[in-house]
Design a protein around this nucleic acid. Structure first.
Lengths: 271, 271
DNA sequence: ATACAGCCTCCAGTAGATGGAGAGTCAAGG
DNA sequence: CCTTGACTCTCCATCTACTGGAGGCTGTAT
């Protein structure tokens, strides 16, 4: 029987950790002095500790290890756990690879501009949502006013209210801009038939997004930054881009207001 | 000014998290109602939140992000941080790769034997240590008894005591076994000159180790398992192997005692 | 007026330790 | 026998980045 300090030295595991393993019942000393509470370990507890370290090293949690060592887990189940772990690690590595690319992108961008970019791209998941929309080809971006008026008129006639910030979907680029102006509705919201305004569900998707804060006239910078990011980080475009008008309803409309806040989202998939 | 729920919806960040960011001073609401304590955010706080998310995504801690956003950190320093992060991630990925190999090794081994092996290999760092030793070529492993007697005699004559479990270094294999029996000393311990017994420092090294618990006569199984592990996990041998006799001094000597506990260590380097 | 959703604060818990305070224990030296 | 110093004990706090819940206001819609 040896004391915790020696056991620690032999096993290269800190005393504190041994006490912790005792506390959670993962490795209890062979004996505890009833009067002094000193822990006494036996040399032949080293194999168990080694097994714990080896399993921990494979990425199992102490909880899992405890269960493995407690019950006699069949080899079958152990195999399952390890295969699961294998997949987990592979995914983890892919994540790391992605992160590495993103760090590299940032770094390159900083070296070029010698400052942090104005735009920060984030990847997020957007939920499916119901919308009412009007779609048409317009000659230039600012000329969607007519579409908005059509949509608003129809909605107010039917006493339907939007449930979030409205946005435009751009189905195609210049010179023939195919724009669809949208207003979110409550789930499953239906509308009476109408030649121009339709309700439909927009599917959920992963998007790359930036927020543009400043006059609308300079929004192209944001698009530029976003597109560049998507391309260098190995994502692929996967649907029409969304331009979300985040400012409070009262303020919408002025193309030159420097306090305009707009979010641009491109649906993407990992390449 | 919008309330926390809407801000949360717009940013896709949970309410709880926003409150947490407020608490740690990372993102404070533009305004807090003095009577109700309601948090009110401004739309144009979204870019800051996005920046936070983007930096977090690069693997920076909230603390680092807070410092980045607080002081105007020069681009220089930011570059430094990112480069550091880059290296960190690469190392992380190497670790993961290693772990993947280890999991695969285990899996293969379980598929072969349909049970968990008796032996668990762990990698650890051993400290440099001073030893007194006698080295000679012996015809067979059990015949190191003479060397041990030489060493013990010399040490007791000089009233030097060992400071830990003694061990044998095997500098070469069968048939000409070049063995060095060792007893650890206190640091910098020196001995009077002696033709057979010398004191020296054993350098620290990384080792792969297993513990054999059972009669000495079956220790070859442990060697087998360890060597196989080292080879399949892509490490390389890097020095003489150590066989450490862990049982309490009183019990040493019986080759057939089934309670013998021995640790085998091979110095290794990552291939 | 009354739901009911939304918001508040405070407390607890996660995993796997790590660090420290304050007190008891053990072996050796004088 | 006393002291010193190394070990050991328990208990508590801390770390990261949240998450969950209880219990109690607030604001809005009907």
């Amino acid at each position: 029987m040896i004391r915790i300090g020696l056991f620690s030295k032999l096993s290269q595991v800190p005393v504190k950790t041994l006490r912790y393993y005792d506390e959670i019942g993962l490795l209890e000393p062979a004996e505890i002095d009833r009067f002094t509470s000193y822990r006494y370990y036996s040399i032949d507890q080293l194999p168990r500790l080694n097994r714990i370290l080896a399993l921990k090293d494979l990425g199992l949690s102490l909880d899992q290890i405890a269960r493995l060592l407690a019950e006699k887990v069949p080899a079958e189940q152990l195999r399952g756990m390890l295969r699961l772990k294998e997949v987990e690690i592979q995914q983890q590595m892919q994540q790391e690879q992605k992160k590495l690319t993103r760090v590299a992108t940032r770094l390159k961008q900083i070296e070029l501009e010698d400052k942090m970019s104005k735009y920060d791209v984030v990847i997020k998941e957007v939920e499916p949502q119901w919308i009412a929309s009007v779609r048409d080809v317009i000659p230039s971006y600012p000329e969607q006013g007519g579409l908005w008026r059509e949509l608003e008129t129809m909605l107010s006639q039917n006493q339907v209210k939007g449930t979030g910030p409205c946005f435009t979907l751009y189905h195609s680029d210049e010179p023939k801009i195919d724009a669809e102006v949208c207003e979110p509705l409550t789930e499953g919201g239906s509308l009476p038939p109408h030649p121009r305004v339709q309700a439909r569900e927009l599917p959920g998707t992963e998007v790359a997004a930036v927020i543009h804060h400043g006059a609308f006239t300079s929004i192209s910078e944001a698009y530029e930054a976003l597109v560049k990011w998507i391309e260098t980080n190995g994502y692929q475009f996967n649907g029409p881009c969304r331009e979300i008008y985040l400012q409070l309803p009262a303020k919408i409309g002025d193309q030159n207001d420097p306090d305009t806040v707009t979010e641009i989202q491109f649906p993407v998939v990992k390449a």
